[in-house]
C-alpha cells in the first residue's frame, strides 16, 4: 500500500530583519557575516505570533490542498523547539483549529531542528499501519538566538504542514531512513531563554556527518544516485552548510536552490527543511523525485524520498505558495525586533 503527502502548506511571518541591522548593533562587519553565513535576512514573528499560530496557518493551507473532511484526521503531531507551553500541547490547539477534534490522537515532538520530520515519519507509520486514515505532521518554530550571538543572525520563524494519507497522493513516499547519535553540538537547558552551541563542533561531526550519512543510506537503500533525484532539500541552518553538503553528495546547485530558503528567511528550525519541501512541491512536476534530509542537533537526520504524482498539478494553486510568503515582507529595525522577540527586560519583570 502506498502512503504519501495528500496536501501541504506553509507559513512565514511578514517581518524581516537584515543582517546589516543586527551587525550594526553589535559592532560586527555585516559583509563578513553575510558572506560567512550566506544569509541576507531572516524572518521575525509578530508579537502575537508563536509556534501554534504558525502551525495553524500552515495547516489551514495544507487542508485547502488536501480537500478532506477534518473529522477523518486520526493524528496531529507538531514538531518544534519553541512550543508556547512547557506543559500543554501545541497539537491540541492545532487540532481544534482544524476542527479535527475529538476522536484523534495529538502530541508535540521535540528534536531541535528535526522535530518536524520526526512528526512526519511517525504519521507515515500510523497511516502505513492503517491505524489512521489521515494524519497532520507539522514543523513550526519561533527560534531563539541570544542577543549578540552568532545564532541571532539566523534564528527565524516559520512552519510547514503536511496532510499524510494513502489516497489521492500528490507525492508518494518511496522510503525513509534515519541516522541518530548522541552528539551534544547544540542544546537549551530547562528554563534557559537561549540555546548554546559547540561552535565549529556543529559542522563536521554533527550537521555533515548526519546529513551525509542519512542521505547516502537513503539513496543506497532505494538504489538511487544523485542524478536520479530532481531536488535535494537538506536542513538549512544557514546558506553555506546546505551548499557544502549538496556538493559532497554530488548534487548540483540546480538540484538544491529551489528548496534552499535560508538565505532569504534564515533558519526556521523545525520548519526549515519542511518549508524547503513545500517550495519544491509548489513547482514540482509529475514523476520528479525529491530527497529531503533534515538535521536536528543532539543529533539526528531523517531522510525521505518522494515521487511527485500527476495530482500535484491540481493542488499547487489552491493555497498561497511559499514564494508568496517569502516575497511579502516588511523590514524592522533592531529595536523593533528586540521588542517583538521579548529581548527587552521591562521594569516590572
Amino acid at each position: 500500500m502506498d502512503v504519501g503527502i495528500v496536501g501541504y502548506g506553509s507559513y512565514i511571518p511578514v517581518y524581516r530583519i537584515k543582517v546589516e541591522a543586527i551587525a550594526k548593533v553589535w559592532g560586527q562587519d555585516a559583509e563578513t557575516m553575510r558572506k560567512g553565513l550566506k544569509v541576507d535576512e531572516k524572518s521575525v514573528p509578530a508579537p502575537d505570533e508563536d509556534t501554534a499560530t504558525i502551525a495553524v496557518e500552515a495547516s489551514r493551507n495544507a487542508m485547502l490542498r488536501a480537500r478532506i473532511n477534518p473529522k477523518r484526521i486520526g493524528a496531529v503531531y507538531v514538531g518544534s523547539e519553541s512550543h508556547p507551553y512547557a506543559v500543554k500541547p501545541t497539537a491540541t490547539i492545532l487540532a481544534e483549529a482544524l476542527e479535527a477534534t475529538p476522536n484523534l490522537t495529538a502530541a508535540d515532538f521535540e528534536f531541535a531542528c528535526k522535530a518536524g520530520t520526526a512528526s512526519m515519519q511517525a504519521i507515515f507509520g500510523l497511516v502505513k499501519a492503517e491505524m489512521i486514515e489521515y494524519g497532520v505532521a507539522v514543523g513550526s518554530d519561533t527560534s531563539q538566538g541570544a542577543p549578540g550571538g552568532a545564532l541571532e543572525y539566523t534564528a527565524a520563524a516559520g512552519g510547514a504542514s503536511f496532510i499524510i494519507g494513502k489516497a489521492n497522493l500528490i507525492a508518494k513516499l518511496n522510503g525513509t531512513r534515519s541516522f541518530t547519535t548522541d552528539t551534544p553540538d547544540f542544546w537549551r537547558r530547562e528554563r534557559q531563554a537561549y540555546p548554546r552551541h559547540g561552535g565549529r563542533f556543529t559542522g563536521e561531526p554533527a550537521y555533515f556527518k548526519h546529513i551525509l550519512t542519512a542521505s547516502k543510506n537513503m539513496m543506497n537503500g532505494l538504489g538511487l544516485e544523485p542524478k536520479d533525484i530532481n531536488y535535494f532539500v537538506p536542513h538549512q541552518p544557514n546558506g553555506k552548510f546546505p551548499r557544502q553538503a549538496a556538493k559532497k553528495l554530488g548534487f548540483t546547485e540546480d538540484q538544491l536552490l529551489q528548496g534552499l530558503l535560508s538565505p532569504q528567511i534564515g533558519n526556521t528550525y523545525s520548519g526549515a527543511s519542511p518549508l524547503g519541501l513545500t517550495a519544491v512541491l509548489d513547482i514540482a512536476k509529475p514523476d520528479e523525485k525529491i530527497l529531503l534530509t533534515s538535521y536536528g542537533s543532539g543529533a539526528g537526520s531523517d531522510s525521505f524520498v518522494f515521487t511527485v504524482t500527476d495530482k500535484i498539478l491540481e493542488v499547487q494553486g489552491l493555497a498561497p505558495k511559499t514564494s508568496d510568503y517569502i516575497n511579502k515582507k516588511k523590514y524592522v529595525d533592531y529595536g523593533t525586533y528586540a521588542k517583538y522577540r521579548g529581548k527587552i527586560n521591562l521594569a516590572d519583570e
Binding site: A46, D48, E49, D50, A52, T53, V56, E57, R60, A97, E349
Partner: peptide, 10 residues
C-alpha cells in the same frame, strides 16, 4: 488570520 489574543502574564 489566527493569532495570539492575550496571555495571563508569563
Amino acid at each position: 488570520c489566527f493569532r495570539k489574543i492575550a496571555e495571563d502574564g508569563k
